[in-house]
Design a binder for these strands. Structure first.
Lengths: 229, 229
DNA sequence: TCAAAAGTGTTAAGTTTACACCCATGG
DNA sequence: CCATGGGTGTAAACTTAACACTTTTGA
């Protein structure tokens, strides 16, 4: 009557080498030996699911390196793992691109577009994570979670392109994020490379907390014409 | 090590008498006797969470009356219910406005804006459900789940207004939903009331499956200028 | 003929895309 | 002075909100 194991799993995503990658570890033992799986584990008695996934990820990456964590969904197919029933709460985790976490020897990063053989239903969880990230990049300030503290617009463009899976225009990216008040110039610039070019200005995200920035695509509340800056 | 009770709960919403209401039942016994709580119960051994919530709702309302069901989130605070630990997967359920389900005697509908004293963390779940519904009305075709098979634009306007919590213009509602191809006229009309007026045309939703209709607020993929009708 | 309700026309505002053009630097 | 990025100006496209106006009916 409703008694089941409960595990928490996280698809930790990071833009690495120009592509969106997910952290996976290779199972040594059966079931699904040598297949790649998401980090996580059993829910402890005195912790909620978010506390739990943060604790378990600390074994893989320093939790301070996680710029964002959010619930994705429950995966509860009775046959999702063999043996005793285990329900999983899946999370999306993000690591900013300037960090290269030290990971255990059984753990590695894999591009989400070309996943290796994955264990259980972990591939579906990865897909869900990628999809959630792409959506939120459009209507929230979640870019902060992929980017280093300071960056050039073209660096940010690369991050967005990798996460979204298609080219983003640097011009328009800057316009949109600036209009919404998400970006501010640091005042600093970066020296051009050996082939020259104008020095790029550095920017930072104004906020490091996720916020919805494009709340209503349509059907907005009646205008109160008093919100303009 | 990760063994806990698991329950499924649903905030079933319907627009009734011009307001968005949620179905609650009054607890007879402790804990939280006489407080109102969401329908649901323990996860069965051979069912996933969605199957489970549909099964349990069948005791309250005919499942065929549910026009939409989706996961909201996991609620897992170790102290969320007294006694043995229970993790809950919360759902949003919707019932179209033309249906008046027969509910058990301990069960009643309550406006989500003026909830009675609720049990456990059920108030938070209700808020989450209302918020999810409002968001999805803007960027999906989820209106179909609130509306009867055929309806006038002004009836639809009332449904959207109740669910969103603010007045929606019938003119613009029709424009937006028609532009997106969600509505089609049935050809029928409704006779005007006793005070006269032009007969209203009847419409229906083209699809009864949830679909995202406004996928990218910004940062769209490069245009392929070949999608126009 | 008037009031009431429904539906259409039209304008204005806001946002984003696309692209031409200018800027700053290294060789 | 030219190539190479970086950044801005500007126009066009698209959508939605607001509201005036027309249509259709009952009294």
């Amino acid at each position: 009557m409703g008694l089941a194991g409960h595990e928490v799993l996280a698809a930790v995503l990071q833009v690495r080498a120009g592509s969106l990658q997910v952290m996976l570890w290779e199972r040594a033992r059966e079931p699904h030996a040598h297949r790649w799986s998401l980090p996580g584990g059993g829910l402890g008695d005195d912790e909620d699911v978010e506390t739990s996934i943060r604790r378990q990820l600390a074994e893989k990456v320093d939790v301070r390196q996680l710029s964002h964590v959010e619930q994705l969904a429950v995966f509860s197919n009775p046959a999702r793992v063999p043996g005793l029933r285990v329900v999983a709460t899946a999370f999306l985790g993000l690591v900013p691109s300037h960090i290269d976490p030290v990971v255990p020897s059984d753990t590695a990063w894999h591009p989400v577009d070309t996943l290796p053989s994955t264990a259980f239903d972990h591939q579906a969880i990865c897909r869900r994570a990628r999809s959630r990230l792409a959506s939120k990049l459009s209507y929230t300030n979640l870019g902060f979670a992929l980017a280093p503290p300071e960056f050039t617009i073209s660096a940010l463009r690369s991050l967005y392109s990798a996460a979204l899976g298609y080219k983003v225009s640097a011009t328009n990216l800057q316009r949109v994020l600036s209009r919404r008040g998400l970006l501010e110039p640091t005042g600093g610039t970066v020296q051009p490379g050996p082939s020259g070019g104008r020095p790029a200005a550095l920017f930072r995200f104004v906020s490091g907390e996720m916020r919805i920035t494009d709340p209503f695509a349509v059907l907005r509340p009646p205008s109160t014409r008093s919100l303009g800056s």
